[in-house]
Design a protein around this nucleic acid. Sequence first.
DNA 1: ATGGGGTTTCCAGTCGCTGGAAGGTCAACA
DNA 2: TGTTGACCTTCCAGCGACTGGAAACCCCAT
Lengths: 130, 130
Amino acid sequence: MNIGDVSRKSGLPAKTIRYYEDIGLVTPPRSENGYRAFRETELHKLAFLGRARELGFTIEDCRTLLALYEDDGRESSQVKRVAQDHLHKIDEKIGQLQSMRGTLAHLIDECAGDHRPDCPILEDLAGEQS
Amino acid sequence: MNIGDVSRKSGLPAKTIRYYEDIGLVTPPRSENGYRAFRETELHKLAFLGRARELGFTIEDCRTLLALYEDDGRESSQVKRVAQDHLHKIDEKIGQLQSMRGTLAHLIDECAGDHRPDCPILEDLAGEQS
DNA sequence: ATGGGGTTTCCAGTCGCTGGAAGGTCAACA
DNA sequence: TGTTGACCTTCCAGCGACTGGAAACCCCAT
C-alpha cells in the first residue's frame, strides 16, 4: 500500500502519516522507488493512533499506549493510569471553559448590542466595576 | 514604570508584555537608557488584555476589542458580535471535550486496572468490537 | 570596583500538524 | 514515443501565544 491508500483507509492525511514516521510512531519499509510501502500492521497502528488522537491523547500518550498495546507483559493498570490522567486534564479544561463561558454569557446577556457605544463587556474587560 | 512594575501590577509576565509590544498591542515609549517607560494608559491596556485573554479571546480578538474600546464611535453590537462568536467557539470546544470525556470515562470504567494485560481501552483504540 | 538585580535583544523551542515548492515515478492514452 | 496527470519524495516555513535561555547593558549600594 502506498501512502494514499493508507491515508484513505485510516482517515489520516498523508502529511500526518509522514509526520508520524518522522517522530518514530510508525516505520514503514520502502519499496525500490523510494515510496513508503505500508503493511497491514502499519495501517493498524495508524488507525490506533487516529482513534487515540480523536480521544485527545497527546502524541506522547499515544506513544506510550502503542507501546503498551504491543507489550504482552503489560498490566491494564498502566493503561488505566494514562487514561485517568488524561481524563483529569480533560476535566480541568472543561472546567476552565465553563468558567469562561459563564462570565462571557453573562456579559453578553447584559450588552444591548445596539448602535450605542455603551458596553458592559468592554467595561468588564477594562476592570470598571459595574 | 519599568516592565517589572507593570508585570507585577498587571499580573502578566514581562516576556508576555514584550511580546505584546512586538505584535503591536502596546507601544510604550522608551527612556534614555533604552528601558520601556510604561504610563498608566499602557498599564490599563495590559490589564485589559490580560482579562480578555483570561476569557479565552484570541490575540486577534483582543486587538479588535481594544480598538473598539478606544473608539468612541463604536456600537455595542460590534462588541457583542465578537463576544458571541467567541462564545460559540467555546461551546464547540466544550462539546468536543465532553464527547471525549464520555467515551473515555466509559472505557476507564470498564478497565479492571489490575496486573492482567486485558484492557478494553486498548481494545477500543485498536478498533476491536467488544 | 564589585555584586546583584534589573533590563535589553535575539534566537530557539513548544505542540501537532499543515502548506507549498521543487522534483522523481508511474500508468494510461494519443 | 511523448506527454499528460496523479501520485510520491524531501525540505523548509508557518500557525498561536507564548516561554526559556544566552549574552550584554544599566543602575544602585556597599
